[in-house]
């Protein structure tokens, strides 16, 4: 494969959640006729789907752009994966679907718990079962909000 075989100024589309087209295969390019076909269409940001995204990016050349669409929690995880591949903010466009779903990182056991709705301020940690207070503090690297023991100061 010669260096010119991938034209530099191209855009990689990755979609998560309901936006993920069931029929779209990987690395098929995008606009064909009227049908939009993303390069990567997956359900959730899981270790496996993020690895597929990284594989695509690790083959890419500078000049590439990344568009990530889907629920916030998933695309923020995808952004963290892309940053690990050396992508910078200027090269990424995030299309958020705000559905209130959040990932919560437990400060005490380091497990990450999925929280279905943003209105809840507390959630049981999937790792250590502590009831966590969910803060607005957000880590771009972990793509998660900070959770810490909710009622720890109250007398036992």
């Amino acid at each position: 494969m010669g260096p010119m075989s991938t034209p530099p100024s191209r855009t990689i589309y990755a979609t998560f959640g309901a936006e993920a087209h069931s029929g779209a295969g990987p690395e098929t390019g995008h606009q064909s006729g009227t049908e939009f076909r993303p390069d990567l269409a997956v359900g959730q940001a899981s270790p496996d789907s993020l690895k597929r995204l990284k594989d695509v990016l690790n083959q890419a050349y500078v000049g590439v752009r990344l568009v990530i669409a889907g629920p916030s929690a998933d695309i923020l995880a995808a952004r963290a994966a892309a940053a690990e591949c050396g992508m910078v903010e200027e090269e990424m466009t995030l299309l958020h679907r705000v559905d209130g779903h959040r990932r919560v990182f437990c400060a005490h056991c380091r497990a990450t718990t999925s929280m279905p709705e943003a209105s809840a301020h507390e959630i049981g940690c999937s790792g250590c079962a502590t009831v966590l207070s969910v803060s607005e503090h957000f880590s771009r690297r972990l793509a998660a909000h900070l959770g810490y023991a909710a009622h720890a100061e109250e007398a036992a």
Binding site: A107, H108, Y148, A149, A152, E153, A155
Partner: peptide
């Protein structure tokens, strides 16, 4: 540290 908060949080009320 926030990590050990459960260990020292109660002191704040006690």
């Amino acid at each position: 540290s926030t990590e050990t908060y459960p260990e020292w949080a109660q002191d704040r009320s006690a």
